[in-house]
Design a protein around this nucleic acid. Structure first.
Lengths: 358, 358
DNA sequence: CTGAAAGCGCTTACAG
DNA sequence: CTGAAAGCGCTTACAG
């Protein structure tokens, strides 16, 4: 009706009225400028005169106007969103993920927000059909993959991602021939630190717990560090001290009980994750072994829970803040065309009671 | 070049070629139908002949085509996305959130995915300027708010959300005059269960730990249940048994140490969250009091960590799976115009060693 | 410094 | 059952 005067939806020129779902067109009509100028002003373009810009931004604020991201994204082919794909090992309907990864979420969303990106979170199962879709559907500009997965099982998915030109970074293993970017802690060094610490406490028969096969390159690297530390101490590494377990507390419990039953003697245990260490400590306790008197235990990750188990767990800390921030910085760099590369973070030994040093 | 033949970007009619970033237009050209038909086919419209539909879907699959969400969203005014706003109490740069809420994430993303929605995750501080933007910018169709916040501090934000017609649901308090939808556990009942359990163990001087003021309606409700249980047992509730603490482990520790120093006698403690209970148990231990012999302790939440503290914590469990699924179901119902309402979940007593029942 | 115009890739009335 | 066309709300070359 009022469009007789070229005024669109708002009632009067220069009087800011409430508009239901304002568009840049509404702002333009009220400000008495073109819609293009509104768009420029809201993006702080140097092309628009400061006074004009301020007036427009003021009106936008008063109307509670926000740029329609769908429209902007359609135009620019960007979403300013990162998809965070976390996969769980449980495979069940548990929807649980390793708390280590969960605790990265805060740092990831914070630093993404700081760089102007939103984070789309989702849980994935290794069996799911996923990944390519996020970028192809323009929901995300890049992906962050999180979780201790079976590397062999999803290696093919990584290849598919790479083939589809998807930008992604994976936390954890930094395998040589692995497609895409990755960021992880120096697992070899971490394994070395854990083992050297046990050796320094006089432990000589140090078992290693976890799946150190190629299915878990991170754990394999921790094992490499373990072997190196034994070498440094002039000790053979005894393959009978390898205890295989899937990365769950339950499986660790079962495996360590069986190992104890086998009668193999040991005085130290390096569990390649805290989840495993916790299961192992329960197994040791239930079998009547004292930690750390009979067996010194060291884990890996420094889960929030690690300080609260009994006895508190000595472990190798992965810095989740650096990890979260590094993942975001790298993927955003990749999205924005900067020169980025895979990298490693320094692990840190956290000494608590489970090793016997305190 | 090849457009002479009306063929767009793809090389030959009926031969599926690799197209860089295929659009529905590309699919249409290859399938020899209009773009509109492709759109219908991909949405499984009954308007399109089944054979045509299947042919189109097959081509889309082969080309790795996915609907551009920005374009679809612009057209339909929907994003099929829920924003999950978690706010932390720490206020620091810690980017940490109560693990209770964090553990809901899996269930939220899973059930959202099941209903065709993505989840945009973000951390918020109560001081941040937020909220309205998500829906106004068409990034999300509705919000889920998570976190034990200071209710008074963000009540105004809830009003702003409501004023902007934002669809949202808040987990926790179901205060009478509160705007928007909410879902929480029955906190009065939970507080009653915790207290009645302590009474059943013969405890008579039961302290309550936490901020039970109006700033935390959830905690206030738990306190109401505590009072009701004492009433049921014919006991007065003694206000000298109220121990105020902010909802952190550290503050609980400090508060309980001070309370012990005051010399007020007590044989039971109901902490309104597990975080508080854990801090309290440390304070008790450090003061030489035995749990549960000297003081029986019950918490609230059933954090993942609760089973691992020493002694394992008896607590009131909030069902995070039901909570996560309920939040998603309700907000999606609201978005899709169904008749939805606030609701409450049943709390459950989890008996462990800290109360002395085992 | 500003405006008119094109176009991003969809969905969906409208017409057949 | 299918197509031609309009239009969602932006951004940005182009022209002035």
């Amino acid at each position: 009706m009022l469009n007789t005067y070229g005024i669109h939806r708002a009632v009067a020129y220069n009087a800011v009225m409430k508009v239901e779902n304002p568009t840049s067109r509404d702002i333009a009509d009220i400000a008495g400028v073109s819609q293009a100028t509104v768009s420029r002003a809201l993006r702080n373009s140097p092309l628009v005169r400061p006074e004009t810009r301020d007036r427009i931004q003021k009106i936008a604020r008063e109307l509670n106007y926000f740029v329609n991201r769908n429209a902007a994204g359609l135009r620019t082919h960007q979403s300013n969103t990162i998809a965070l794909l976390m996969f769980d090992e449980t495979g069940g309907d548990d929807a649980q993920i390793n708390p280590f990864f969960l605790s990265m979420l805060g740092y990831i969303t914070r630093s993404a927000a700081g760089m102007g990106y939103d984070v789309l979170a989702s849980m994935q199962q290794l069996t799911d059909d996923w990944h390519v879709e996020y970028q192809a559907s323009h929901r995300a500009d890049g992906l962050i993959l999180l979780g201790y997965g079976d590397y062999v099982a999803y290696r093919r998915k990584l290849d598919a991602l790479a083939a589809a030109n998807t930008r992604f970074i994976i936390y954890g293993a930094v395998a040589a021939d692995q497609p895409g970017l990755s960021l992880g802690c120096d697992n070899v060094r971490g394994g070395h630190m854990a083992t050297a610490h046990l050796l320094g406490l006089g432990r000589r028969r140090i078992a290693i717990l976890g799946d150190i096969s190629k299915r878990h390159p991170e754990f394999a690297a921790r094992h490499d560090g373990y072997v190196a530390a034994l070498d440094d101490a002039g000790l053979e590494h005894d393959e009978s001290l390898r205890i295989f377990a899937d990365n769950t507390e339950e499986d660790a419990y079962r495996a360590v009980r069986a190992f104890l039953d086998s009668g193999t003697g040991f005085d130290g245990l390096f569990a390649v994750t805290d989840m495993l260490a916790i299961g192992a400590m329960h197994a040791l306790a239930d079998a009547g072994r004292q930690v750390p008197q009979d067996v010194s235990v060291v884990g890996f990750d420094d889960l929030p829970r690690a300080a609260y188990v009994n006895p508190p767990l000595t472990t190798i800390q992965q810095n989740i803040r650096e990890a979260g921030e590094g993942l975001v910085k790298t993927i955003v760099g990749l999205i924005e065309g900067e020169d980025v590369a895979s990298s490693q973070l320094e692990p840190k030994l956290i000494v608590r009671q489970s090793c016997g040093a305190l």
